[in-house]
Design a protein around this nucleic acid. Structure first.
Length: 401
DNA sequence: TTAGGGGTAGCT
DNA sequence: AGCTACCCCTAA
């Protein structure tokens, strides 16, 4: 595969949302096995898509395991370990809908997930097997025998933690991946086209220097390693720091996308048309790049930000047939941030401390002192819904500030 | 990672 | 108004 094809593949793997094929399947179909970074992109893309649809299932565990293998040569990230642990628990918890452990498929799930799947991890001494995971394993196995334990776990809000940790992991992964080569090219192209002074100013803003703009060849592979703010990051900034983002920044983001669309249209269209005519099974043919004006009216699931470039750009490029590429949706699915108002801080609904939690906290302090992290780790079940800061604050209340 | 100051929201 | 839970920030 040539450089351009790989760029396109990379872009498609990263960008296609609501896909008809999994990014990982597409990756396999394209036979890109020697590109670990592309594979990471595909895995992270699939995980993001699952999360956007609220699917925290055993396929997610597969993806997390693949991700861990892909990062075998480096230290496994804490976020990956936590995400795996909580996802595994969540996958088990969904089989705890009956009143008692013996009904339903809890036993089977336990064997499948904790016996087989995690058993394999143990054999290959995976970093994913953390003390936290082992504690959960023993708790879950205990739940088979003890109805109290079963009930306790059954009523715990694991899903919230699983999603939070997955969200955190994905954020880190996308940041590590940086922006795609095509985006990089589009940005350079755009910056060159603009007034040079403005470009330099803009470049600074996005962590670019003037030299890098002119440096085409080297940036492709090396820049990717850097923490380049991608268009995703622009979106993220729009979401999280909306008030501070000026109109010029939003315009730049939009124009970048438009540039990208023009470039990719030229690159993708011929091969796609061919692919459709031949009806071959390369996988790329199933990626939707045909014009779909009706989709512009699709319902916006976010906070209704007027960020989507579909409407504005179509008028500026009137009469032109353009491929449909979805505007990236924000990855923040955490309930913490979902309804966050623009200015005032969002507060989670207040959950009063139960006597059990308070007792666990007292015991924890007795045992570990004010090591909130250890206290939480030592009792993940009771403190499932509490952060270390929560523990600290509660203790502050208990002893009277 | 933790401590602590200072603040807000929601409830009674 | 007072209390509790939670948030944000900074310093160590």
């Amino acid at each position: 595969m040539g450089v351009i094809e790989i760029w396109v593949a990379e872009f498609v793997l990263r960008r296609h949302q609501n896909p008809r094929v999994y990014a990982t399947s597409l990756f396999s179909a394209l036979k890109l096995d020697d590109c670990p970074k592309l594979k990471t992109s595909a895995v992270v893309r699939d995980m993001s898509n699952s999360l956007i649809r609220g699917q925290v299932d055993e396929r997610m565990l597969d993806l997390l395991e693949v991700l861990e293998k892909l990062q075998e040569d480096s230290v496994t990230m804490e976020s990956l370990k936590s995400a795996y642990c909580w996802t595994a628990v969540e996958c088990t918890l969904r089989f705890m809908w009956p009143e008692t452990a013996s009904d339903g498929f809890f036993g089977e799930a336990l064997e499948r997930i904790w016996g087989k799947r995690i058993g394999i991890l143990k054999v290959r001494e995976s970093d994913l097997v953390t003390p936290e995971l082992l504690k959960w394993e023993s708790d879950l196995k205990m739940a088979v025998e003890e109805p109290d334990m079963y009930q306790k776990i059954r009523e715990t809000n694991i899903r919230y933690n699983a999603i939070s940790h997955l969200n955190q992991l994905l954020k880190e992964q996308w940041a590590l991946l940086g922006c795609s080569s095509l985006e990089l090219e589009a940005r350079k192209w755009f910056l060159k086209r603009k007034d040079p002074n403005a470009a330099r100013e803009r470049g600074k803003h996005y962590g670019y220097s003037g030299e890098e703009v002119n440096d085409v060849e080297d940036t492709v592979n090396e820049q990717e390693q850097e923490r380049e703010p991608s268009l995703d990051t622009v979106n993220e900034q729009e979401q999280e720091h909306e008030p501070s983002l000026d109109k010029a920044d939003i315009t730049v983001a939009r124009e970048l996308k438009d540039c990208l669309l023009e470039i990719i249209q030229g690159l993708v269209e011929p091969s796609t048309r061919q692919g459709q005519e031949n009806n071959n099974a390369t996988g790329l043919s199933s990626v939707d790049v045909s014009p779909q004006p009706d989709r512009a009216n699709r319902t916006e699931t976010g906070r209704g930000r007027a960020e989507d470039s579909q409407g504005t750009s179509s008028s500026s490029l009137s009469g032109r047939v353009r491929p449909y590429l979805p505007t990236p949706k924000p990855l923040n699915v955490s309930s913490l941030k979902k309804d966050k108002p623009a200015k005032t801080g969002f507060k989670r609904p207040v959950r009063h401390w139960t006597p059990e939690e308070v007792q666990a906290l007292r015991d924890g302090v007795k045992e570990y002192g004010k090591s909130w992290k250890d206290i939480k780790k030592s009792n993940p079940l009771v403190f499932a819904a509490r952060t270390e800061v929560n523990l600290k604050d509660k203790w502050r209340n208990l002893i009277g500030r």
